[in-house]
């Protein structure tokens, strides 16, 4: 008796996850049908994939007719920070200011600006902060050099450790031979 109750509650728990994700647990939803379960999981996966595809916020009316210019606009947008959302590019953000900046980028591209012109234009107004990738310059050199410095430091540490281990090994070996000699004598 106990075992039966245990099994049924387990089964319910399993399907609850799927139905909660799907909101499809109407009267026709049969909990034990493996095909429907599979379809349910598939639907959840599909939803997740679909949701990640909408992460780009460019709206249809913003897109330029010229595919080459649009490709450049996309590339630039991905390198510009949405200044109100901090960790998103203007390409990813739905913020009104991000939209204004996307439109601005496209307008200036259409007017014949180079990529560098556009970056300069925005850096003059918002500072280096607007660039998602910080430029290599005096105040960021430590930031850029940090990975190499840490790598060298770690290598130095590892080398030191290995040399020491070898020394300890050697001295332990000597001790062992000394010991065996002393026991012999």
């Amino acid at each position: 008796m106990k075992r039966v109750i245990f099994r049924s509650s387990r089964r319910q728990r399993g399907t609850e996850v799927v139905s909660a994700g799907l909101m499809a647990s109407g009267p026709g939803f049969r909990r034990d049908n493996p095909v429907e379960k599979f379809l349910g999981v598939l639907a959840v996966l599909f939803l997740v994939a679909f949701m990640s595809a909408t992460a780009f916020a460019v709206e249809p009316d913003e897109v330029l007719a010229d595919p080459v210019l649009e490709a450049r606009a996309l590339d630039i947008s991905r390198n510009l920070r949405c200044v109100v959302c901090q960790s998103q590019s203007i390409d990813e953000s739905n913020a009104p200011l991000a939209k204004d900046m996307r439109v601005l980028v496209r307008e200036r591209l259409s007017a014949g600006d180079s990529d560098a012109d556009i970056y300069t234009y925005l850096v003059q107004r918002y500072g280096d902060y607007v660039l998602l990738k910080p430029p290599v310059q005096q105040n960021t050199i430590l930031l850029w050099a940090a990975p190499a410095l840490i790598f060298v430091a770690a290598g130095f540490g590892a080398a030191l450790f290995l040399v020491r281990m070898k020394k300890i090994d050697a001295s332990v070996g000597e001790d062992a031979t000394n010991n065996s000699e002393s026991t012999k004598s």
Binding site: P96, L97, D100, M101, V103, R125, Y126
Partner: peptide, 9 residues
Amino acid sequence: DGRVAIDFG
């Protein structure tokens, strides 16, 4: 259109 606001950063 928010253009002057962008000019002011």
